[in-house]
Amino acid sequence: MFDQILQFVLTGVTVGATYALVALGFSIIYNASDVVNFAQGEFVMMGAMSAIAMSAGDGIPVFLSLPLAVLVTIGVGILLQRFAIAPARGASVVTTIIITIGASIFLRGVALLLWGKSIFAMPHFSGEQPIHIGKATLLPQNLWVMGGAAFLVLGVHWFFNHTTLGKAILACSCNRTAAQLVGINVGMMMLIAYGLSAFLGAMAGILVTPITFTSYDAGVMLGLKGFSAAILGGFGNPMGAVAGGILLGLIESLAAGLISSGYKDAIGFIILLLVLFFRPSGLFGKATSERV
């Protein structure tokens, strides 16, 4: 029993680490521009798919295709900001939601056009020899996912707390006008925020695809889960989003193992709803009260 649970926990943390990266992407974009980017999951798909496509057949070697795929995805993120989000500044929340949903459909459409409906695999980074921990097993790739995610999360944390650029982006999210007045190039900061968010998505895709495979519509569920995780942690709180991601991964993995794999997504969402019913601003979110 214990070994079984350990196995579920290990799987859960791996999946959760992916959710955490996607959720972090949601938070960064939300903080910078008040937009819920429903195309966040498509960044994950784009990262993985373009890496696979570049290395396919006689393509370029993996160590080149991975960074190139990340760059492509960052480019997609920046284009999204520049040509879809920026022109619609001042639009209502629902309008921007529809715009990003439009963008996600568009990106899925592009992927469908380029790569069709097949499911694609990606080689593991360092072999598929399982590692045993008690009776539980772990693939080296699981370690890559967990380690990579941890590294990226710490990096993002450092970026926002210890670099001028990171602080400038935070300043824009606090008060756009004030940031502009002290000479911050707000437009540029937005591009960076979207680029960073796309970068995290692409990294998540590249890290996890060797385990989960990918296809043109793989981003949809990941996007939803990332959004759930960000809300669970308290929307707009980046480290809350990370915690929410890990938690959601664990809940799903345990629910799938101990209760029913068919209902694992449902159980994840039920717990999310229960959390919201009792803490309407998420686990680590600040309770806001209307000022009148």
């Binding site: 529809i98 996600s104 568009f106 469908l112």
Partner: peptide, 12 residues
């Protein structure tokens, strides 16, 4: 699919 997404974005 691609055109549908693009139209959605442009209209909004």
């Amino acid at each position: 699919v691609m055109i549908f997404g693009a139209i959605l974005m442009l209209m909004m």
